[in-house]
Design a protein around this nucleic acid. Sequence first.
DNA 1: AAATTCACG
DNA 2: GACGTACGTGAATTTC
Length: 933
Amino acid sequence: MAFGKGCHLHLIDGSAYIFRAFHALPPLSRKSDGLPIGAVSGFCNMLQRYVEGNTGPDAPTHVAVVFDKGSHTFRNDLYDQYKANRDEMPEDLRPQIPLTRRATEAFNIACKEIEGFEADDIMATLACQAREAGGRVTLLSSDKDLMQLVGDGVEMLDPMKNKRIDREGVMEKFGVAPDRVVDVQALAGDSVDNVPGAPGIGIKTAALLINEFGSLEELLDRAEEIKQPKRRQTLIEKRDQIELSKKLVQLDHGMELPFTLDDLEVRDPDPETLLGFLTEMEFRTLTKRISEKMGVEAPVIPDTTPDGANPSEAAPDWPAIDPEAYEWVRDMDALERWITQAHERGWVAVDTETTGLNEMTCDLVGISLAIEPGKACYVPLIHKASGSDDLFGGDDLAEGQIGLETALDALRPLLEDPAVMKIGQNMKYDAKVFARYGIAIAPIDDTMLMSYAMNAGQHGHGMDTLSERYLSHSPIPIKELLGSGKKMITFDRVPIADAVKYAAEDADITLRLWKTFKPQLHKARVTRVYEGLERPLVPVLAQMERTGIKVDRDTLSRMSGAFAQKMAQLEEEIHELAGESFNVGSPKQLGEILFDKMGLEGGKKGKTGAYATGADILEDLATEHDLPARVLDWRQVSKLKSTYTDALQEHINPETGRVHTSYSIAGANTGRLASNDPNLQNIPVRSEEGRRIREAFVAEEGKVLVSLDYSQIELRILAQMADLPALKDAFRQGHDIHAMTASEMFNVPLDEMTSDIRRQAKAINFGVIYGISGFGLARNLRIPRAEAQGFIDRYFERFPGIKTYMDDTIAFAKEHKRVETLFGRQIHTPEISAKGPRAGFARRAAINAPIQGTAADIIRRAMVRMPGAIADLPAKMLLQVHDELLFEVESGAVDDLIGTAKEVMEGAAAPVVHLDVPLVVDAGQGANWAEAH
DNA sequence: AAATTCACG
DNA sequence: GACGTACGTGAATTTC
């Protein structure tokens, strides 16, 4: 058929598909010879799904997969830096490139590439030809460079999000019509492709300018009219650069092609060719699926493994994720059927939907369940009827819901049944919600924590990331249901039919992730980490967070007032000293005052060209002038006021009168917890004024706050891991460790030790934990770099174990791409072999991670054991601050608690790990946190 | 949304 | 020989 009116051309951005497949999937290699094959596999799966989805009236009549070819294009002749910051193609991907061409041909889809041109140019040319012939075009790509082609029958389709982008979509993204997209891109530049653009102008500003002037050319000709001086100057001075940028982003739609649109007609694949290729690649699941589809017998793939090592898992034969397939549970009969099935299986994936993200205040809106891949449901509970308006309490409940109490009473036995595993993604959230409705969910598995145990350092562990990486599926974004910004709605206002798709999909995905991860845990050797350090922490933290800590609003409020006065006073003095009024809180304005107006020494820094005005710089300047010192004071007070006395009051829960932080278990790569909303792990303590904030953290009437903290835990771990006899002895004998280090290094007897020498040794001790460098130590101690390097050299000489530990750790990291704690926690270090400045970061992180991580493991173990140990005491564990646990206890039981909790903490490493150095815990108590610490 | 600054261990 | 560095976090604020 000749291409013309009524025809529909699909153009697939093949190169983008390959890169996505490569990065989304775990490394996979052909069983028989180890050829890396992950990207080809992902690519074939995408093609298969693409072909399967091509039915109905909108199906394409013509299709081509288009690839980039050659690294040098006409754009490099225009500008040698074009795409110059691109990383080299990964080793594992290179051999797969030709195979993806063969895959395309095997599917009998036209495969096009032309030396010296980017895929985008070919797509542009074809799209224009098709448009002129009167046909429709869909560009399957998410590359924003293609947006300039949209309009007049040409649309884009983001294959991952399954989102069509038409003229309006382009307007949304670029703020201009498609024919002006290149103008905006020319101004905004592109850091990915290294298109320079106009410095300081982004998409938003560019769109504003183009809309005002009509076109880029007009804008550049009339640049003098621009009011903002900096912007005007940029546009005039960088005119050449901007015009060059336009040439770089402008796609070539007039290429001479050695083929025509007619050559791209859709053809059915030939079974023999396609299955032959898939068999050669040894894709078992895909071969089977396609054979069934084509009604042919599946070819046999021999099961050969090179040296019998590492036979890869057979890819699971699961139905595709299909939001249409999920069930809306409308009545008790249906719910009972799901409950029965969960009991039969012995597991069920559970996900809760709520009115907000704060588990302490939100309401439960609905519950989704999944029991097998593709088999999931949603139980709506308190969705509002769609007609009911939210202005005047239009609270009519929608039809098709079971009453909240009735449903929870039916679910409670299942959720609390010790014989049924409840599977969730970030179960602490759901556990806290259920707890507020009187349900103690147990036992649990958590896919987020499984991923964290196996993959810390490799990628994030949110559901979207995991689904994309391990299931090649992008979940429905919550934004699609709730909207965003001002007119965002709560989940109970979402129409139930939409909620079913979203919520049940989440449960389905969670179940699939669980089935994927569960068998991998022991192969990755992290079962003990997951079962001993991650999973059991969930109920412990849930309880701590629900308990919260009492914060006295009046104390904070009084302090805030005092701070405000102090700030006003300082501000006045600062303006006086500067000779003009300016925003003290603006580093930019401050920098200009200090360095331009007052002419103090100090240079520019950073890409933005702004002066650096950090505390260390201001401290240096303070010797020259009074102003920097006042600014430092102002900043301190300002910080205390905004972050602590003011923000903290907002976090006091009106019902409990307490502040409830949330800990992320899988946030920090090293195994540490992180505290947020609010962060209670960085409440001031180092400065006298700041420490007073802690007076607002108080015990309930008749109770006392008790703080227990590990003394020097990271240095003790260093002594253990690096096997440093001198350090171990010092810890065993309870000596002052920094003084001992100083004595050893500088040959000063202990009884002649000065505080200054000790201070330097202390800095070195900490420096070692951070992966010391001469530069870093020099900066910290404010001494010449050579001198700092001398200290380090001597330190390595006196404690040779340190050097060995560091070298061994780096060698291990290079070999395994990860490091480990004493308890087997793995922290991946993918950048350890990178070159450039990133290598330094990766090296220091690799040295620090086992130490910081082991300390984190130890306090986790203490926390897991703590509830059982103190069960009989009138005490509650409230907070964890990395090496400190804070308790609230009835006054009469303080000594009991200290005795018990101290024992748990000091013995937390045993019996799994024996330490040659004792763990020592110091205790404090008082009516508030300042006294207790 | 990015950059800057600063609070903690 | 130069580069650019202390490790791990979260939050408020200004600027683009």
